[in-house]
Each structure stands twice: as C-alpha cells, then as structure tokens.
Simulated assay, not measured.
Amino acid sequence: MKTKHKWTFAPRFRRQAFGWRSQPAIQRVEEAVAEIKAAARQDPVLAAEGAVLFLGKVSPALEQVDSSSGAIGSAVNYAIETLVPIIAKAPVDEATRSGWLDRLWKAVEEDDIPYIEMLPEYWGELCHTPDLASRWADELIHPVRITWSEDRKAGGGYFKGTSACMSALCSAGRYSEVLSLLDLAPYKFWHYRQWGFKALIAMGKRAEALRYAEESRGINEPVAAIAAACEEILLDSGLGEEAYQRYAIEANQKTTYLATFRAIAKKYPHKAASD
C-alpha cells in the first residue's frame, strides 16, 4: 500500500495558525508554493493533490492576519496563479478531478475573509475538459440567473459562483450563453463583462468585442484593464498605430512616468521617443 505523502506545509496551515503579522504568513505561503512546485517536477499528480490541499487550508489559516497592506492578499493571489496550472495539467481521470473540484468549491464557499476569491476565475481551466466544464456551468448557471433576476435588481445580489460559471461556460465553448447571461446583470461590471469580451473574441467577433469593452467603462470600472483589453485586440489585428493613439497610455500606466514610458516603449518599439 502506497504511503500517504507528508507535506511540510500542511500542519503549518491549521485554522487560525497565524497571528496578526503578515510577514510570517507570507513566508509560509511562499514556502508552500515552492514545496508544491518542487514536487511537480517529479510527480505532477502528487503536486496537484498538494495544491488542492493548500488551497483548501490557506484561507482558514490566515483568518487573523492583518491584510490591510495587501501584501498577504498578493502572496495568496500569486499562489493561486502558480498552482492552478499544476492542478489543471495533472494527468488524472475525471473522477479524481471531480473530487478535487468538489474540495476546491467547498473552500470557495467557506472563504469568508476572502483570500481565494480569485480561484473561481480559473474554474474552466481547472475543469480541464469541455464536458466537465459544461457540467459545472449547468450547476452554477441557475443561481446566477436567480441572483440577477428582475426582483433582485433593486438591491442587487451576490453569488460566489458567478465568475466560476462564466469561466466554465467559456471553457465549454458556450459563448452565446455567456453573453445572454450577462444581459441579465443589473449593472455593467468589468469583472464579469470581461467574460463577454472573451466570448466575443473566441467567436471571432473582434470589432464587437472592442465595442463591448468600451461600453463597459464607468465611474468605478478599471480603466487600465479595459484599455489593455482593447489595446490587445488592435495589436493582434495589426492595428498598432490605432492601438498606440487610443490606448497606449491608459493601458500601460505605471507608478512612475519612467516606468510608464518604458512599458510603452517595450510594446511599441517602432515609435520614436518624441512621439
């Protein structure tokens, strides 16, 4: 009988394991990610199991950490971005993957702070196959419709699975349903409308995607993210000059003028500094 692997990080991430200081928690998160990445080089399935275990334990362990600086949140987001591909690419059967997804979904539902709120955005990738993604979309789409139904629009509603549903629909190739579902939303919120943008791109409707993104602008919407999406469409379409004129500054805004200049210069090497 195969001995169960003992992860070094596992006992360190018991519920409320950390105090208010963020640095010790950040260090442990980084160590856990490094341990899982090292395992992935030898045993991808074991590493994926470790990633699922970590993502299920991390939020309860960090409940008491002071997250006001954003540092611990950034560390967890980096962990999610790193571990999702390990889980998604692991060569396992559907039953194993379904079990992983059930465990991850339980973690999302119990994520009260929240620390792993980014995870649902990768749900389609985690499903790995269009069939599994489609089944998850079927599970999640009804609650989204209820949340955005007419009688809820006045006060609005929130469902943790909205991004997961959109992600799963896109991975399943159900692009028209993404757009029709977004039509029910009581407000234009780029966090969700980005999935409509991606759906239009996947359908080959780049001009419509550009208009869709522009129509998503609003007082509280992320200007840089929307501009970056529009810029990418134009660059991919060979319209570099138009991309430069319309979106270069908004899409590449950094914390200093020099950093902004360098970002633009890197993306548009044909432009002179005087431009």
Results as ranks from 00 to 15, higher is better:
235 L>K: 12
64 Q>N: 15
129 T>V: 04
103 R>I: 03
163 S>R: 15
142 H>F: 06
229 A>I: 01
211 R>C: 00
139 E>G: 01
48 A>R: 04
235 L>H: 04
21 R>Q: 15
218 G>C: 07
16 Q>W: 10
23 Q>M: 13
75 A>V: 04
126 L>C: 07
218 G>I: 11
257 Y>R: 15
17 A>M: 03
230 C>T: 04
75 A>M: 06
12 R>W: 02
81 E>N: 06
130 P>C: 06
227 A>V: 05
79 A>M: 08
19 G>P: 14
141 I>G: 01
213 A>N: 02
273 A>V: 10
156 G>C: 11
70 G>K: 05
268 Y>P: 05
175 Y>M: 08
96 T>F: 01
217 R>T: 01
176 S>N: 14
235 L>G: 02
63 E>N: 12
101 L>I: 03
202 A>N: 04
134 S>W: 04
154 A>H: 12
64 Q>V: 05
225 A>H: 07
185 A>F: 03
132 L>E: 13
272 A>V: 07
252 N>I: 12
30 E>H: 08
216 S>D: 00
257 Y>L: 15
260 T>S: 09
83 L>H: 09
26 I>V: 15
140 L>E: 03
6 K>N: 10
183 D>R: 10
182 L>Q: 09
61 A>W: 03
214 E>I: 07
254 K>I: 00
248 A>S: 15
20 W>L: 12
217 R>S: 02
27 Q>L: 12
29 V>S: 04
142 H>C: 00
258 L>V: 14
75 A>E: 08
108 V>C: 07
15 R>F: 01
82 T>L: 06
72 I>G: 06
62 L>V: 08
80 I>F: 05
